[in-house]
Structures are given as structure tokens and as C-alpha cells.
Amino acid sequence: MDKPKFKRVILKLSGEALAGDKGFGIDEETVDNIAKEISKIGEMDVQVAIVVGGGNFWRGRSAQRMDRATSDYIGMLGTTINALALQDALENIGVDTRVQTAIGMQEVAEPYIRRKAIRHLQKGRVVIFAAGSGNPYFSTDTTAALRAAEIEAEVILLAKKGVDGVYDSDPKINPSAKKFESLRYIDILNRGLGIMDSTATSLCMDNSIPLIVFGIDDPENIVRVVTGEQIGTDVKGV
């Protein structure tokens, strides 16, 4: 196995990535396959922290008649369901894992404590950050950027379902869409490419956190990107 390019990473998984072909809920086989790849990079002594979304259970922006803050809190609960499912899959294959939540639910997970999260990583445990940032109006992409800055991760690995990088237009609609091998954060903002929301993009740009966008339909891409294979789009700089 190739040597890893990074020592500490944030892996950002959308809720949809855990749903597999179902499109909703949790597909256990898909979660198990993702867990196996996470285990492989852990065996390479890479410290792995994960931020999970909740879109396989709840897409808050579609709840037009509901108070936005309430809708966002429901989404945070969805991310916690996903985090616990992923923790279970990891521990079933012998990977010591901790879930930390940004809102209190101590019966099922630890509260998020930065120093404790870093200590878990140093001991070789996978840490899954759930419940977003604990604040409504902020996405889990922003959470990934925030946690990456807090734990001093070397890179954010943004795993996308149904797409293998950043394109100049939607490749599902435009067969001639051009894939970028590299971009600057300012390009994402100026072009309105929408890979991450503007808050997350600006946070990464301001803190010089590199980002790699790649496809998760093949979970083995997790190992490929950690070992430096060019399979997606690299984003960095201003």
C-alpha cells in the first residue's frame, strides 16, 4: 500500500453517501464499505476525523412552512443518526471510534470538546463530529471547515455522491462540462460553483485549508485520495 500524503484529515460525508442507491435512510452495505476504507487509512497511521451530513433523512430547505431554526435542528438530529450508524460499522471491524455532538445528548455521544477530540485522534481513534456546529443557519460543510481549523487538519476530503470532482457546469445536464483538476477558493466564489456554501468556502480560504473534492460512489477512492492519487479536484489558495 502506498504511503499516505497526510497525517490528519477531515473526511466530509454527505448523508446521501450513506444511503447508497436507496436515496433515503441508511444502506448498511454502503456504510460497511465506507467503514472498511476508513479503517485502511487508519492502518496507515492517518488520524481521521469525520463530519457527516443528514440529507438522507432531512433536507431542511425543503421545509418551507417550518421555522428555519427548527428545521435545522431536525437536520442536526439526522446527522447524529448517521454518525452512530457509522460508528457501529467501524467498531464492528475493530476501529475504536468516538462520536462527539455539538448539541448535548450525553446518553449516546460525547459533547464536542476540541482538546478531547485531538487526544482521541492522537490515540488512533476515529472521531465523528455530529449535529453540525450546533447552530441553525450553518451547513455541515461549514462545520467541516470549522472543525478542520480547530483540530489543525491538513486537508478536508469532500466526498461527493454522483460526481467525481468540480465541473464548470452540471455534468448530469451538460455532457460537455469541463472538470477542473485544480481551483482556487476565490474561483469557487467568483464562479458560484456551489461545491461548498460561501461561508464554508470563505472559512477555508481565510485559514488556508486545502480541499480535495472527489467521488464517493467508489469508496476505495478514500484510500486513493489519501495516498495522493489525482482523482478529483484540488482546491487551495486565494
Rank of each mutant, 00 (worst) to 15 (best):
I195Y: 03
I231W: 13
A149C: 14
K116A: 15
F57W: 12
F214V: 05
G23V: 07
V126R: 00
P171W: 03
T143N: 07
E28T: 06
V46N: 00
V48M: 00
S39A: 08
A145F: 04
I231L: 14
E152S: 12
A85C: 14
K12D: 10
V166G: 03
A109T: 13
P175F: 08
E110I: 04
A63T: 15
L189I: 15
P111W: 06
C204P: 04
F180C: 09
D217G: 05
I222C: 01
D234W: 08
T201R: 07
Q106S: 11
G78Q: 08
I173N: 06
I113H: 08
Q122K: 14
V95Y: 03
T201L: 08
G75F: 03
L203S: 06
D88W: 15
E154T: 12
T79A: 13
A63G: 13
K172S: 05
A145V: 07
D217L: 09
R115E: 13
A109W: 00
E110C: 02
A109Y: 02
L193D: 08
K40W: 04
S62Q: 13
P210C: 07
D234C: 04
D21M: 13
E28F: 11
I118A: 12
F57D: 12
I231S: 10
I93C: 05
A177E: 04
S71H: 05
N174K: 11
V126N: 00
D72I: 02
G104P: 08
G94F: 06
R115F: 04
G104Q: 04
E43S: 12
W58G: 02
M105K: 05
P4N: 01
M205H: 10
P171H: 09
I222R: 02
P171Y: 02
V51H: 06
V155I: 14
I103N: 05
M76I: 08
G15H: 12
D234A: 05
V235H: 06
V51N: 03
I216Q: 12
G15L: 07
R119F: 03
I38Q: 00
N82F: 01
E150Q: 13
G232V: 02
L211W: 12
K179M: 11
N56I: 10
A85D: 07
